[in-house]
Amino acid sequence: MSEPILEVKDIHTFIGQFHILEGVNVTVQRGEITVLLGRNGAGKTTTLRSIMGLANVRSGEIRFKGREIRQMRPFKVARLGIGYVPEYRAIFRDLTVEENLKIAEREAGDLARRLDFIYSLFPDLQRLRKLGGAQLSGGQQQMLAVARALVAENELLLIDEPSEGLAPVIIEQLMAAIRQLSAHTTVLLVEQNFHMASQLADRFVIIEEGRSVLSGPMSDLVGNDAVISKYLGAA
């Protein structure tokens, strides 16, 4: 097996005084889709934020392509080749679709190089490119948020709850896009929607009260109702 692209080892993260992550381990293999599962408030989002450098990780190790990135500033983490798609579709509402993409350029010309690929994944965005972010529907905003992470040549994408609050038809479209882009990049996904997670992911990590408790290939989990109901509630 090749060297993992991302290794998170026993991280402890604090938000203010609160000890949120109390030992999370995540290993992401290159070329795969890994999903973080767990109940609300288990610490999935905080795990992604810890990787990005957006949270206060007091101890543990985070290695990207073998390099320690814990305590690096977020923009440096991003420049190493990690794209972040936060929850709640955090696009820039006062910017047009085009500007939302433009801002993600790390070198001049990034967008021009990748635009065909982006529009092939999300044809809607081409039509909407002059519109303001606030004028887009929820699904379109989510697609823009994912597209934005594709502008630079990222080797790893962290995608947080892409399906949240979206209609089933839109979720299908989004799943197709993520499956397609995973041919080019590695993905670490947070997803509450077990159906979507099981369709997309190669591997899973379950987080429970700030600890990673179980991980393995997705096939181990699918159909294992006992585990699913124990950690994730009703499947």
Binding site: M52, L54, R73, P74, F75, A78, R79, Y84, P86, A90, F92, R93, D94, L95, E99, N100, K102, I103, A104, E105, R106, R148, A152
Partner: peptide, 23 residues
């Protein structure tokens, strides 16, 4: 470009930083 960054930063500077901009 700096203008786009400023306008985006007004809304969410953390997200701008996550895109690789030294905010």
């Amino acid at each position: 470009r700096i203008g786009i960054i400023i306008r985006a930063g007004v809304q969410d500077s953390e997200m701008v930083e996550s895109l690789g901009v030294n905010v």
